[in-house]
């Protein structure tokens, strides 16, 4: 009887994981050592523009993990990144929604790949810009990639891919905050 129950559950799991389920990306948490280093510098207050693209059907806002959908708790992955940047600036004391120095970003690549049985990959590429009083002062493309243990079992690989997303965003923003060129343009 127990075996029948487990078989049924596995059947449901297979069905869920092979197409109709939607998994939510976990909450972002930053690389705090980088945040602590940056917050000690004399940096201008920044506002944050709407991270693009906002269209939920844009390829960067659609991540699938062996057929299952990875969703953002903020509607889109552009919204997820915008919230992460705003929360980091707040943490560092550099956020001011009225500031004329505005940070903008467009996501160019955004994917978690768990198709491999041994290794999973995360890749993200973002074009980041700083506008000062409406004039473009800085523009640069940042990219980050992560590797993590995957699995032959879909039920395990999907969950590993799900938990990797905040690590990918952390890796990308860590690169931005540690970049001397980025720091130079927002220094007071």
């Amino acid at each position: 009887m127990e075996n029948v129950g487990r078989l049924l559950l596995a059947a449901i799991t297979v069905a869920v994981i092979s197409g109709c389920a939607s998994f939510m990306a976990p909450t972002y948490s930053p690389h705090y050592e980088t945040i602590d280093r940056l917050k000690k510098m004399r940096i201008e207050k920044l506002s944050v523009g709407e991270v693009q693209p906002r269209d939920p059907s844009a390829p960067i806002n659609r991540i699938t993990l062996r057929g299952a959908t990875l969703s953002s708790p903020d509607g889109t992955f552009a919204g997820y990144l915008e919230k992460a940047i705003r929360s980091d600036l707040l943490e560092m004391g550099f956020f001011d929604s009225a500031s004329t120095t505005r940070l903008g970003a467009t996501i160019l690549k955004n994917d978690i790949d768990v198709s491999g049985f041994r290794t999973g990959y995360g890749v993200m590429e973002v074009k980041l810009s700083i506008n000062k009083k409406g004039v473009l002062a800085f523009e640069k493309v940042y990219s980050a990639s992560t590797q993590f243990e995957s699995s032959f079992a879909g039920g395990v690989a999907v969950l590993k891919g799900q938990s990797e997303y905040p690590n990918l965003v952390r890796a990308l923003l860590q690169k931005v905050y540690a970049d001397p060129a980025f720091i130079e343009v927002i220094k007071k």
Binding site: L7, A11, V14, S29, A153, L159, S163
Partner: peptide, 23 residues
């Protein structure tokens, strides 16, 4: 075939700890 796939998945999932997030 379906039973075999399910059995393999059950076996593999049972062998590996299921990853979760507790934030």
């Amino acid at each position: 075939r379906l039973t075999l796939i399910i059995a393999i998945n059950t076996f593999l999932c049972a062998c590996i700890a299921h990853p979760i997030v507790i934030s």
